[in-house]
Design a binder for these strands. Structure first.
Lengths: 209, 209
DNA sequence: TTATATTGACTGACCGGTCAGTCAGTTTTA
DNA sequence: TAAAACTGACTGACCGGTCAGTCAATATAA
């Protein structure tokens, strides 16, 4: 029995895992659409195709579900960025360029802009999420960029005088582009391709020796 | 009698104006502290030292009050920036430097970081506020910066190849610094002075010929 | 000047709608 | 058939918005 469980989860366990993911998925879509406070668990349940009570078999509270939604959706992005960076072969300039290109791609795919707004607008009010977000996402990205810059300095590609402590200066325009696309597109459409090009060129120019 | 009313407002009229401002003030503080959705009009009333019903003698709804709070607090900043820019004498480099210094000062004074988060997180969900914010604040600031850059290009201080359409790239790091200060200070304190210095230097380096 | 009438600013108890969270009963699985 | 999973009607707290009544400020009358 135990051996069988280790080899392949029972039908029940598979079902449970599927349910859990369905709820997180539905939560993601509703939270992204409505924001945390305005999201109704009834709607999440309908979207997941289950009864509301079932949610409470998998999560303690709306807040817990919210945290899990954020977690589950940001982890893959971080992991992918890290493994990509670890394997990258090329100059610091090339690396930085491709890192930011991938960042733009990630930030504008699917419901990421909504997630950015969610985290910035409401998420950071939850200490747990602010903590998680900083520790797992921001820090990781900062260290990654700092690593690239340091290599660039060592190789003589980048100047040493830029205070690499402040990677926010490099990243912020990308975050803002996601928010803009989401909320101010009507007032003033943004050509993300051109924006990203301009931004990356600006960064390189600011860092080059 | 009528003459007297024109010269100095009656006691009632003074009272009315004072009340209105007290409510906006109280609303500002509560909204900044709790966010729009979580703010209770009861609390606003208590803070303003009045009954809840009174709010509805001055504003149609919670949303209207919110709009007025945003408006009242952002107008002065915009106006000051505009008149300062109009009178500025000096090179484009000096002008851009001082413009951004003033922007940092404005963004980090009083409850401005909270206001930034409020607008970015919840405000933009209200089309009216997104519209107002874009039309009265962002546009104005963009045009101002574009003007400075253009002068810099004409005077040969700045390169012509930067796409000045994307002023967001220049501004975003300042906005993000306000959010950081507000929410991520615990995880990783930010030295705003040094940050602003680095940012401004980075901008100039990116624009200079 | 004093007494009376009118105005309108203000109040807070109240109402109706909403929704997170619960639990007794039902269905599914092993 | 026992246990586990699931359900959705229900509850109670919450809160934006209302309105009948109060009272201070002002206008009018005596």
């Amino acid at each position: 029995m135990e051996a069988q469980q280790l080899q392949s989860p029972s039908k029940r366990e598979q079902q449970k895992e599927a349910r859990r993911n369905a709820i997180i998925d539905a939560g993601y879509q509703e939270f992204a659409l409505q924001g945390f406070t305005a999201t109704k668990l009834d709607d999440v349940a309908v979207r997941a195709g289950i009864g509301k009570g079932t949610i409470y078999l998998y999560f303690d509270s709306k807040e817990t579900l919210f945290q899990e939604v954020i977690r589950k959706n940001l982890f893959p992005i971080r992991d992918e960025a890290q493994s990509y960076a670890a394997e990258f072969k090329g100059s610091a300039t090339e690396h930085l360029t491709s890192h930011f290109r991938r960042m733009y791609q990630a930030l504008h795919q699917d419901r990421m802009p909504e997630l950015v707004q969610l985290v910035m607008g409401e998420g950071l009010r939850f200490p747990e999420i602010a903590d998680f977000f900083f520790r797992e996402i921001i820090s990781s990205n900062q260290e990654l960029i700092q690593g690239i810059i340091q290599k660039g300095v060592e190789d003589g590609e980048f100047r040493a005088s830029f205070n690499a402590e402040f990677t926010q200066i490099l990243i912020a325009p990308a975050m803002v582009s996601a928010l803009w696309r989401l909320q101010l597109e009507k007032q003033s459409p943004l050509d993300i391709e051109a924006y990203a090009d301009t931004h990356i060129e600006f960064i390189l120019r600011g860092l080059k020796t």
